[in-house]
């Protein structure tokens, strides 16, 4: 592998629904915009998973695809080795369930996950949880709220070795609606190692630049300021840079472009 920071995108053929492959593009772009060479290494169905990637990304998928992904990744030496050393990993929706200890599909079959994240998922039975949500983070390193689009049916219980990522703000759709489906509005899960898992699509990193930067900082250390390319409208630049800290970065970037 080259000196580029490598974002490993796992099995987008089967874990690529809902545009989640975009999370890998976002991570690579945010490194490049900081002058750090980066590339997306896509692991296709017949490719081996590299053990020395810098960030790992898993997306959502439909039921049958998720079972295939679990079968394919369960014995991957490369992925297990990366997860064991705590490599920063983003797992969305089906990706979250695959990294868990087990998940039960609609016909009642219980499928073993990779066991890297202490969560187990069972069918919700009720209507799918579908819609835009806002959630307050419960982990260090994130200040502002997270947002995204959830679209899933399972109920995910966290074990003692996992902590929730965030808590949904909007209880309007009923106490059992939203997030992990456990009735307490908890959203997603994080491991003591490097896994950040969520049900949020959007893709989640496109809508939450601070979450992208948290993963990147874990991979490469403190992040230099970010300089956006030309041709980005100012309101969009604001969104790409995120909150307060980022407005400072925007000025820094502008000065840098001006040769200051």
């Amino acid at each position: 592998m080259s000196d580029d920071v490598t974002i490993v995108l796992l099995l987008p053929e089967v874990l690529g629904t809902y545009g989640d492959a975009g999370n890998a593009s976002v991570l690579a772009a945010r490194l490049r915009w900081r002058g750090i060479p980066a590339r997306v290494h896509t692991v296709g169905w017949t490719d081996a998973v590299p053990a020395d990637g810098d960030v790992y990304v898993l997306g959502g998928g439909e039921d049958a695809a998720q079972v295939l992904a679990a079968d394919r990744l369960r014995d991957s030496i490369g992925l297990h080795s990366a997860l064991a050393r705590g490599a920063p990993t983003l797992a969305v929706c089906a990706g979250l369930q695959v990294l868990g200890t087990a998940f039960t599909i609609a016909d009642g079959t219980r499928i073993a996950g990779l066991g890297a994240l202490d969560v187990e998922t069972r069918p919700g039975g009720g209507p799918r949880r579908i819609g835009d949500v806002v959630a307050d983070p419960l982990v260090d390193g994130l200040d502002g709220p997270l947002e995204g689009f959830e679209n899933h049916g399972g109920i995910t219980e966290l074990g003692p070795d996992a902590a929730p990522l965030a808590r949904l703000r909007d209880p309007a759709r009923g106490p059992a609606a939203g997030g992990n489906g456990t009735g307490d509005r908890l959203e997603g899960a994080v491991s003591a190692g490097g896994i950040i898992a969520t049900y949020l699509h959007g893709p989640v990193l496109a809508r939450n630049p601070a979450l992208a930067d948290l993963l990147l900082a874990r991979a490469v250390g403190e992040l230099p300021p970010l300089t956006l390319p030309d041709g980005v409208p100012p309101t969009t630049a604001q969104r790409l840079l995120g909150g307060r800290r980022s407005r400072h970065e925007l000025r820094t970037g502008a000065r840098r472009r001006a040769g200051a």
């Binding site: 690529g16 809902y18 545009g19 989640d20 492959a21 975009g22 593009s25 579908i130 819609g131 835009d132 689009f149 679209n151 699509h201 959007g202 893709p203 496109a206």
Partner: peptide, 9 residues
């Protein structure tokens, strides 16, 4: 459809 995630595909 309310979700625009598809723009990333």
């Amino acid at each position: 459809g309310r979700d625009v995630s598809w723009l990333w595909d």
